[in-house]
Nucleic acid binder design. Structure first.
Lengths: 341, 341
DNA sequence: GAAGTGCCTGCAAACGATTGCATAAAATGC
DNA sequence: GCATTTTATGCAATCGTTTGCAGGCACTTC
């Protein structure tokens, strides 16, 4: 692989000049510029970003630390992030911790060694080790969607509480009286927030909160399916708030298999607003905000902080969830009790 | 950010020694090692991978160039790739060209500047510029799933032809006589291969090939939905081979909306085997091979080539597709004509 | 014709690691 | 006690760029 010196030698100039031709950082006579460009062509020269990074103390690279890439949520988020970074000339390195704290820490370390300019964390909130290491990291960080306790950084997230509230209120407005909930794992603040929103809506409507109507899932379709098996044993339940779309889809699957008609006999609402929700049948009613947009905002905010050299006070961006009514929710109807086996 | 020299100064040794302590590359007395380690701790020192890369001419980074990250296929593929790379101590930079050739070229350039050790391309095959640039790149490359004309590199792909054949034969075995096809864009070899498999199966069964039963889609759910609108106008069609799962899902959506019962009135088979196929209802019958596995094999093959310094003859790994029968296909039944509006 | 003013261009010192070569000190052999 | 081996450490060149500081040359200008 040829270097800037090879180019300089071939063009018969100093490598300083070659550098300036490449970066247009000071005037160069047309003649010399022509020769240098010809030499670059001939040698098929590609400047080394690693040498440049070393000198400039910046890599134009950001890290994306996510906890589990199998949720379409992350794919959409990554799209938004990647898009903004691309436009700004930044590059994204993808780190999937696969829900293993140890893997997460290894990645964090690697990213720091690679001297990333910024970090986007979108990861389970229950890892204490992470908080500590992140604090020492001394790199601009933004946390997306989840809160990581003990880390002070920019943060962009949807209002989980309000989302849970809106979802449940929607079901209540459809005259449902017995509303189940598939919550997330109890270790994450995300799921507690959503659950609290659900409780608030119930309380506000004067409906009782029944712990036995709440099942913990793990944010996967499989988890939603399993939760459905338990939850739908209770014939009185006519609607379910699944605290993410994937679990909602698992629930819908269970309903379809057991000939429970949605929304006639059972209403289902999800959370997130993944793109696929509109293509399944019945299309999933959900609450959320464009995930892609969240990614764009996250990346934008991070890049801005990088530009400022990390200074400026911390920003907390709270996005207001919106209800997207599709086909999986409807008015409670009296004959639904007949569904039970 | 502290450097190796700061550590050396604090520990009272030369930075050579510090380097050797870090890399365990030559014996160091226990006393000195202890002091160095203490200094590293105190300063919170993290070695710079960029300096190391410059010296060692290797970045332990690979590029992943994909054409459109909104297809779950890519998410699953990326998972497999990322996993293998993680284990091998490599890092993945994610580049989504979003189907824009110009963006693809920009990314390729950036990756070369960053001196990636290897490249995985999983991208639309119709960009001639890419082939040319890639050939000059002089970096180990592996192409996944698609063929890029004019590029000589390792390649791992599923046998698209055989997949199309198996899918169609499955429908024929269910006694379907009029089988439609939603093909991919005619610019990619992938879709032509799959289409040819479809034709072969028809020919073998003595069924006629009707061009008007083939609609071109764009590999998205939306595209499948639109194709369905045209295709299902023909009441004689009792089964459809969608040449990827996403389009199959779009088709299923259309069928559900129009009260066409699947599989009773219409059978649908997809291609790829995305994970979500099993959770929708009816679950999508499909043909393919573990996508994650494909990613793992791709990454593994690439890393092996990197290890060999790029030498060794080119490998072409052809994976045999397998049929996964789920709920969306069944025996042709006579009363299906009644479905038409 | 000397001084002043613009243009272009080059020298050499960083950036933060790795590593071949050399050397000092300690241990061993006889 | 001296030569020899072993063990532990340091020096300095190198990787491929960027960039502050000068220097050379050709015009003006008086």
């Amino acid at each position: 692989m040829s270097t800037i010196k090879d180019v300089a030698a071939l063009a018969g100039v100093s490598y300083t000049t070659v550098s300036h031709v490449i970066n247009k950082t000071r005037p160069v006579s047309d003649k010399v510029r022509g020769e240098v460009e010809a030499a670059i062509q001939r040698l098929n020269y590609v400047p080394s970003a690693v040498a440049r990074s070393l000198k400039q103390q910046s890599t134009c690279t950001i890290g994306l630390l996510i906890s589990n890439s199998s949720n379409p949520f992350f794919a959409e988020l990554a799209q938004g992030i990647e898009d903004i970074c691309y436009r700004a000339g930044y590059t994204v390195v993808l780190c999937n911790s696969d829900d293993q704290p140890e893997r997460q820490q290894t990645y964090l370390r690697v990213l720091l060694e690679k001297r990333i300019d910024g970090l986007i964390i979108c990861s389970a909130g229950d890892d204490l080790g992470l908080a500590e290491h992140v604090r020492e990291a001394n790199v601009p960080i933004i946390i997306v969607d989840r809160a990581v306790k003990g880390v002070t950084s920019d943060i962009v997230q949807i209002d989980h509480f309000k989302g849970g509230y809106l979802a449940t209120r929607h079901l209540l407005e459809q005259k449902h009286k017995s509303i189940g909930c598939i919550a997330g794992p109890d270790t994450t603040t995300v799921s507690t927030d959503r659950l609290n929103g659900y409780r608030k809506a119930l309380a506000e409507a004067g409906a009782p909160f029944r712990p036995e109507w709440v099942i913990r899932g793990d944010f996967t379709a499989e988890g939603g399916y399993k939760a459905a098996r338990i939850l739908l044993k209770r014939a009185e339940i006519t609607a379910v708030f699944a605290s993410n779309d994937l679990m909602g889809i698992g629930l819908l699957r269970f309903a379809a298999e057991h000939a429970i008609r949605v929304p006639n006999q059972l209403s289902v609402i999800g959370f997130d607003g993944i793109d696929l929700g509109r293509y399944i049948y019945p299309a999933l009613t959900t609450v959320g905000q464009s995930i892609r947009r969240q990614g764009e905002i996250a990346a934008g905010t991070l890049l801005e902080r990088i530009r400022k050299g990390g200074e400026g006070r911390l920003r907390k961006i709270l996005m207001t969830p919106e209800l997207t009514v599709r086909e999986s929710t409807g008015t409670a109807s009296p004959f639904l009790l007949s569904r039970h086996e």
